[in-house]
């Protein structure tokens, strides 16, 4: 799945006073790659994602984009970031306009179709169900036609059924083109199903960067046992879980 290098983060760290939320982390992302940031609460997943998105400020380190110029990033915060009193269509048009697209109406209409929001497009966002709202939240992130999509625990508030459908849709969205996907999750199943690379963070430290097999090897657990991934993840996280 890996294509050309997209960006390289070197020594990215974040401190809040004496508290180290994220120890220096190196991370390279390639075009078309799907990376899962996995770790328990307070592991530094959101901090790393928000720094990559340009929302958070790093205390140290640098991000280098291939070609030297920052490219469009789609940012999906954990909680839907949109205007509840505007309709789904108005939200999409507004953010497409803010992203500087030439024809916000056309972009919004296209996203409504791709996200299957046609039936609810003219309802206020506040009236949408949790799953639909998260789909809209994601669609808004795509309004700027990003090359890197960053999702902070996108299924954290969803039921298993809603998770399944949302991931089907995300997979469909990123299947076209070479958009890279980085998402955070606390579920090893979700990470192993939807990512081709798993980055494990624990207590602000990067513990492991590789595949599920690499994670199991690093944990030293039985790869053939039931829920091998879950067991390995628990072992790696240890007392921080």
């Amino acid at each position: 799945m890996r294509g050309d290098a997209l960006l390289t983060a070197r020594g990215i760290a974040r401190r809040y006073g004496s508290f180290e939320a994220l120890a220096p982390v190196d991370l390279a992302i390639s075009r078309g790659e799907r990376i899962a940031l996995i770790g328990p609460n307070g592991a530094g997943k959101t901090t790393l994602l928000s720094i990559l998105a340009g929302v958070g400020v790093a205390s140290a380190g640098s991000i280098e984009w291939a070609g030297g110029t920052a490219l469009a990033v789609g940012w999906v915060p954990q909680r839907p970031a949109l205007y509840p009193r505007l309709t789904a269509r108005e939200n999409l048009r507004l953010f497409a306009g803010l992203e500087g697209t030439a024809d916000p109406r056309a972009v919004a209409d296209g996203l409504i179709e791709r996200a299957d929001l046609g039936k609810v497009a003219d309802r206020p966002a506040s009236a949408l169900s949790t799953g639909t709202l998260q789909r809209l939240n994601l669609a808004i992130a795509l309004a700027g036609q990003p090359v890197l999509l960053l999702l902070d625990e996108p299924t954290g508030t969803l039921s298993p059924d809603q998770r399944h459908r949302l991931w089907n849709w995300i997979t469909e969205m990123v299947a076209d083109g070479d958009m890279a996907l980085v998402f955070s999750t606390q579920s090893i199943d979700e990470a192993s199903r939807s990512a081709d690379r798993i980055v494990t963070l624990v207590g602000g430290q990067l513990r492991m960067d590789g595949t599920l097999d690499d994670l199991i090897r690093a944990a030293g657990t039985d790869p053939s046992g039931p829920a091998a991934g879950e067991t390995a993840f628990m072992a790696l996280v240890g007392d921080d879980q």
Binding site: A53, V55, P77, I140
Partner: peptide, 10 residues
């Protein structure tokens, strides 16, 4: 509404 983080991306 949580929108500041989106707007803050530049």
């Amino acid at each position: 509404d949580g929108v500041l983080s989106r707007l803050g991306r530049g």
